[in-house]
Design a protein around this nucleic acid. Structure first.
Lengths: 238, 238
DNA sequence: AAGCATTTGTGCCTTCGTGCACAAAGTTGA
DNA sequence: TCAACTTTGTGCACGAAGGCACAAATGCTT
């Protein structure tokens, strides 16, 4: 029996959820812009206009949205609230997600105070840190306050809060151990801010955000730009 | 004469210039792992082993490195220091880059205290904020202390420090104005943490890091996983 | 010196992502 | 009602990216 195909991320029916990864990565942008438009009392918007606000090409936007279904009206455009609802539904924002943050340094504090979580269905249900000075600190997270728990409580916090997403904001040398404990506790989705490569078993998804990597990519293009200013060297060598 | 191709000459710039974006995005990872290996006194490493540490496939690693030139030895592997040097050179890490950070909230503080900048040639040369309580604050950045400047000093700070990269860590509603002023002051590379789409003229590169977007992508896959647990319902309804 | 073991570098093929262009579908106005 | 206009949804073609497999090149051993 070909069971292996079930594990593949590719779906056969386009009617279902065969949404390309590149599209999924852009849906949150579309959703955010649509919410902003709704706040400005905009009812309908064309793909050209919406695409410009999202920083993508109109054709790409239309193809992305076509993967969700035909939610536009030809000759008119898309109804903002209607499209926003369907995107949020597809992204799973209609149900709440519990998030545990491990590591409450400057970055952890920034994450807790970030306003964009609660409005998109994410609720911070646990804060963990190993440093004695931080443990016990009361942190204002949205409407409710949270107390930073010691690292020993990790398994208990994850299981009791039924958190499904974890954020690692620890130093690099602690990240892998934290990751292993999170996975053992049942977490299958991890957002990693520590500058290290995490190894996880299959079935666990890790996304990484690396500040230094982003800067180095910028530096590469910046240097290439500088090199292009000296085309004489190339002519001389030829 | 067939000038189009010259083999075995890694110094030909035409070959080194066309590095795919996907490769450039992985080079910082390779570099970081190589530096770590060097600290552990590892002299040579094979592509299989290095690939495993970097979380990529060996074939991909070799193809990535082949874009830089032939820096490996068949039958042996890659010399750690040698390869590390060539990657850092290609990324432009051999020369220092001045970085200005706009917005010194929790996230800004986290960026300033991040250790990975100085070791990769990035030096924070300016801190800017609009809030009176933050302006004037002395922040410890690596070896030297920096004082947060008021936003009015933006143009002066950028031009006097000759910064080429800027980081926007402000709230979303201030980001576009800050971006415009940075571009007008001569900045051509911007790392944007604000959850908004920035519009810039051609020739300016913007990379964005959006925390909520990353969480929403995780939530999408998490939801898909939950939906896959109930395939019977779909079959029954069909 | 010669053969064996090991590892790199790369050609080929498949898959994924993007842009173009246009038919289909809906609205507006007379 | 019908024609002109607007906008969506999509087929197609092209380029980028990834994986496989193997020839070329190097070290080691006899």
């Amino acid at each position: 029996m070909p069971l292996s195909r079930q594990l593949s991320s590719s779906r056969i029916r386009d009617d279902g959820r065969g949404i390309p990864d590149a599209t999924v990565a852009r849906l949150p942008i579309y959703h955010r812009v649509l919410r902003s438009l709704a706040d400005d009392a905009v009812h309908t918007i064309s793909s050209d206009h919406l695409a410009q606000r999202c920083g993508v090409s109109p054709a790409k936007l239309r193809k992305d949205l076509s993967h969700l279904g035909s939610y536009g009206t030809r000759g008119v455009g898309y109804e903002v609230d209607f499209l926003s609802y369907h995107i949020s539904r597809e992204l799973g924002l209609s149900q709440p997600w519990g998030v545990v943050i491990v590591g409450v340094g400057n970055l952890g504090h920034a994450l807790v105070s970030y306003k964009g979580f609660a409005s998109r269905g994410f609720e911070i249900v646990g804060l963990l840190d190993s440093h004695p000075d931080v443990v016990g600190e009361k942190v204002c997270a949205g409407e409710t306050d949270l107390v930073v728990q010691p690292m020993a409580e990790l398994e208990k916090v994850v299981s009791s809060s039924n958190a499904s997403i974890a954020v690692i904001a620890t130093p690099a040398d602690a990240a892998q151990k934290v990751c292993d404990r999170l996975v053992a506790a049942g977490v299958r989705s991890i957002l990693n801010f520590a500058p290290t490569v995490l190894s996880v078993p299959v079935g666990v998804e890790v996304r990484k955000v690396d500040l230094a990597v982003e800067l180095q990519i910028l530096a590469f293009h910046e240097q290439r730009r500088v090199d292009d200013l000296t085309p004489l060297a190339q002519v001389m060598q030829a």
